[in-house]
Write a protein that binds this DNA or RNA. Structure first.
Length: 582
RNA sequence: GGUCCCGUAGCUCAGCAGGAUAGAGCAACUGAUUCCUAAUCAGUAGGUCACAGGUUCGAAUCCUGUCGGGAUCACCA
């Protein structure tokens, strides 16, 4: 239950039936939120202020009319009118205790929402070129996309996770040539130094050996035109294997892999462009030279263009290169068209910030394809990750082979730490990824801090079982505990915070901001650790009371609630909760 | 030059789709461990929310402009 939505619905209803309310009154601007200052109560609504104009009355007068109606609602303990016309609502202890019971009953599915109403949505992420292993730059988009997909799923969308394999274009030819070089080496030849522009990494050596084993010297003296397609297929297969392994190491999942080359091969690119053509969205023209720095080899030439400007872009965009072949953009239009036809009116693309210039054209193309009022494509850009070693940037250069692979980082600090750290920042903000910080065990490291709180919850259960032999701490027994004895302000504060989880899920999903979950978990951990420490001074606030079964069970229920919320949140982030930290 | 992102405490960052006195961690200072994990907690101090206008009951949040930082800019993917 999202209690804010719950009470908002009730209050809107009450507002619409107020004396003197016009039939067509707009109650949408009414909000119900937690007041910033807890002293103001549990809920605050702006209803009186928003209704002042349509009702032509003073906010305070409207508040006076609404207050008794609200006070009568289930769960409401008291109502106050404050400031310019805020209505502050305080909920009864019993209401909060019922919420804890709800959390225990629902388990990690607590916070699930029907906000998405089961709408199909396609989330595309990673889509690294299949030309080598993933490096850290890819990790952020991968983790972000994965968490966003989980988040949307939790919030009620029907999510499909997709990977677009960029297996067409010149970089795949380069890959094939690089593999051929290694192939010659594998057969004992000395092809000399790697030609300029070929991929230097040693990850092609083993695939080349395997290929040499399979095909022997069949391609050694063959013409390039003969071996190129074979080497392309083989290399892309192997590189996708590497990437899948890397994704697996990160715990990132996809359900659908779509090949760019297949789009070209079975005519879907032509089909998409033809579709645009029929709508008059395509023409042959000459583009203006780019502003700013003019490329050395720029020259005016007629090209097949898409009327992107009619859909919100700044210039029209080329669909064909000067040699007549399709641009990447043309294939990408076909790809989005394909997704649309597969039943996804809603799509999300997760891209690196270096693709910022690409957003408008893809969004406008998608509008053109799907009809203007759809606007079904959202592009989320992830900013750079800067690796730090002892506070110093790690220098990376592809040329010297010193770039850090995703696998290196995962092996060193662990999948969970990588994921959590990359999600503890909003996607538009650059991240400094400090190796020392990520593995540090302190308050300053949110990854560790949240895990610590979870482990502590587990530890309390273990201790309870040890200290009180025969105590039944099964889920059923905990759910049966009498929660009405949880009336300490700190206990209720903790439950309040847990109860904001459903609302947080909805907000994070609506804004596509999984980082909010990481911050929320940090808050939960902090509140829980605070409560834990109270027990040091005040023995009656400890969780375990060997001489008081009922109190122990109620407190264990509280701890169980915290543990459940943390698990629910970590599940969205794709991080495994740990039961013990030593 | 165009476009996009960012600018909040000394540092690193949140800020809940406009709400009441702008928050957290680190660093600094003061306290708390025979005790359910002190790997923690409580407190003090620290801000002209880059700047200037605008929108309205109300702006860190929305709009315009300026300044500063980053990304990107036909035919690459």
């Amino acid at each position: 239950m999202n209690l804010f939505r719950h009470f908002n619905d009730l209050i809107r209803e009450a507002a619409a039936s107020l004396e003197g309310a016009p039939a067509d009154i707009n109650v949408a601007p009414i909000t119900v939120e937690p007041p910033r200052d807890a002293a103001h109560g549990d809920l605050a609504t702006n209803a009186a202020m928003v209704l002042a104009k349509p009702l032509r009355r003073k906010p305070r007068d409207i508040a006076e009319m609404l207050a008794p109606v609200i006070a009568d609602m289930d769960g409401v303990a008291s109502v106050e009118i404050a400031g310019p016309g805020f209505i502050n609502i305080r909920l009864a202890d019993g209401f909060w205790q019922a919420r804890l019971a709800e959390i225990l009953r629902r388990g990690v599915s607590y916070g699930d929402s029907d906000l998405g109403q089961g709408q199909a949505i396609n989330v595309e992420y990673v889509s690294a070129n299949p030309t080598g292993p993933m490096h850290v730059g890819h990790a952020r988009g991968a983790v972000f996309g994965d968490a966003l997909a989980s988040l949307l799923d939790k919030a009620g969308w029907d999510v499909t996770r997709e990977y677009y394999i960029n297996d067409a274009g010149s970089q795949v030819e380069v890959l094939a040539r690089s593999l051929h070089h290694r192939y010659r080496e594998a057969l004992g030849q000395n092809p000399g130094p790697l030609a300029d522009g070929l991929y230097p990494g040693d990850y092609l050596i083993q695939p080349a050996r395997d290929l040499a084993e399979r095909d022997q010297d069949r391609w050694l003296d063959a013409a390039e035109a003969e071996w190129l397609p074979v080497f392309q297929d083989y290399a892309v297969d192997r590189m996708m294997g590497l990437i899948r392994d890397d994704l697996h190491a990160l715990g990132v999942k996809h359900e659908v892999f779509t090949s760019e080359r297949a789009l070209h091969a079975d005519g879907r690119v032509e089909e998409a462009v033809r579709d645009l053509e029929e709508r008059g969205m395509v023409y042959t023209g000459v583009l203006e030279p780019p502003k700013g720095k003019l490329p050395d080899d720029w020259e005016p030439r007629p090209q097949l263009l898409f009327r992107a400007t009619e859909w919100g872009d700044d210039v029209d965009r080329p669909l064909k290169k000067s040699d007549g072949s399709w641009t990447y953009f043309a294939a990408d239009i076909a790809y989005h068209f394909d997704k649309f036809k597969r039943g996804f009116p809603l799509m999300v693309d997760v891209l690196g910030a270096d693709h910022g210039g690409y957003v408008k054209r893809m969004v406008s193309a998608t509008r053109a394809i799907t009809g203007a009022n759809s606007g079904g494509l959202t592009i989320k850009l992830c900013q750079m990750v800067q690796l730090l070693e002892d506070g110093e940037p790690v220098k990376m250069s592809k040329r010297s082979g010193t770039f850090v692979t995703l696998r290196d980082v995962v092996d060193r600090v662990g999948r969970d730490a990588v994921r959590f750290m990359l999600l503890t920042r909003k996607n538009e903000a650059p991240i400094d990824f400090d190796f020392a910080k990520v593995t540090e065990q302190s308050r300053d490291n949110p990854v560790w801090y949240v895990q610590y709180a979870h482990a502590r919850c587990c530890s309390i259960y273990r201790n309870a079982e040890n200290d009180m032999p025969g105590l039944n701490t099964s889920a059923e027994a905990i759910r049966a505990a009498d929660l009405s004895i949880l009336i300490h302000p700190q206990e209720l504060a903790l439950i309040r915070l847990m109860t904001s989880w459903p609302r947080l899920v909805e907000q994070a999903a609506e804004t596509s901001e999984p980082h909010r979950i990481a911050f929320y978990l940090n808050d939960i951990a902090s509140a829980f650790n605070g409560f834990w420490t109270l027990g040091k001074d005040a023995e009656e606030l400890r969780f375990i009371h060997p001489d008081n079964h009922d109190l122990t069970m109620a407190r264990l229920a509280l701890v169980g609630g915290v543990r459940t919320i943390i698990q629910s949140g970590l599940k969205v982030l794709g991080v495994t909760p740990v039961e013990e930290l030593r």
